[in-house]
């Protein structure tokens, strides 16, 4: 049928893994409520599968063969790769949608050189969103990764083009498909600076994202992003892809810097146009 939902969310492992350490439990609960609202929106859309556009964190690929984009086309996926007690998400088998994922991949290939993988392991970058958005792991998931870690990184204009290609592919399918882009905005994860958040930078980025300001979104250089938003800021690629797929204006339903979770936690959705 078409793309029926497009949104963005955070995926930081602290959101689940360090949830019990937070003093301001009301803040955590507001974030969790925003995730739950997003889950309900996806459910209400009638989506038959969920595409999660995430950042490769070396759960599947290494620098011996790093794709700019990859789509998971397996019948099932495994996750998390991390210690389940650390992430506070048990290991599970996640249903995929081999047939739909393969058809989407074939369509995307008409305009973007995308890799595909019939084996897929999920780390926190996908498991944390799924923990909230399909907590019983009943919705078939099509994982998608963008290289945001191993330079040279996927160029931002290609991330935009990839979003457009995903949208065209979804619209050519008979199934209803939801898509969520998940990445940090400014953050310095897994460094001693974990918890550092550039809120002004985040809000400017989210404004550009919400306005669908393609030129402004694609004007960030990796050097600027690294200096002002940290290496975690490279994950804006996933959010840009989601915006391009949606086409319509965005609304940010939740944004609050939560240092313990190491990121400005974000939940948002787009109009589809």
């Amino acid at each position: 049928m078409s793309l029926v939902y497009a949104g963005v969310c955070s995926h930081a492992p602290g959101i689940t893994g360090r949830a019990d350490m937070i003093e301001d439990t009301a803040q955590r609960d507001r974030l969790y409520a925003a995730f739950e609202a997003q889950r309900k929106d996806i459910e209400a859309s009638g989506a038959q599968a969920l595409i999660v556009v995430a950042a490769e964190h070396f759960a599947n690929f290494f620098m011996n063969n790093m794709p700019a984009f990859c789509i998971g086309v397996g019948d099932t996926h495994e996750g998390p790769i991390e210690d389940p007690d650390w992430l506070k998400i048990p290991k599970t088998t996640i249903p995929g949608h081999k047939d739909l994922a393969t058809r989407i991949t074939s369509h995307v290939m008409q305009s973007v050189d995308v890799a595909y993988a019939e084996e897929w392991k999920c780390d926190h970058g996908i498991m944390v969103p799924l923990h909230f958005l399909t907590p019983k792991f009943q919705l078939p998931v099509i994982p998608v990764n963008i290289n945001c870690q191993g330079p040279p990184l996927t160029p931002l204009p290609r991330a935009w083009a990839f979003g457009k290609a995903l949208r065209a592919a979804c619209d050519a399918m008979p199934e209803k498909v939801a898509l969520v882009g998940t990445g940090g905005i400014s953050h310095w994860p897994a460094t001693p600076d974990s918890g550092k958040i550039n809120e002004a930078w985040d809000r400017e980025f989210l404004d550009r994202l919400s306005r669908q300001d393609q030129a402004a979104l694609l004007s960030y250089t990796d050097e600027q992003t690294y200096a002002e938003a940290g290496q975690g800021g490279f994950e804006i690629r996933t959010l840009i892809t989601a915006a391009a797929a949606a086409g319509g204006r965005g609304s940010i339903d939740f944004y609050e810097p939560i240092p313990l979770f190491a990121v400005g936690c974000t939940i948002g959705k787009f109009a589809l146009s």
Binding site: D24, P192, D193, G195, N198, A200, Q231, P259
Partner: peptide
């Protein structure tokens, strides 16, 4: 690599003070 320490060794969060203005935060 790209994971250099940029905050001079400051702590931006702690288990007992995770929601206040972190020491050394550039905001």
């Amino acid at each position: 690599g790209v994971y250099a320490m940029t905050g001079g060794g400051a702590s931006f969060t702690s288990s007992s003070n995770n929601n206040s203005k972190p020491t050394g935060a550039h905001q």
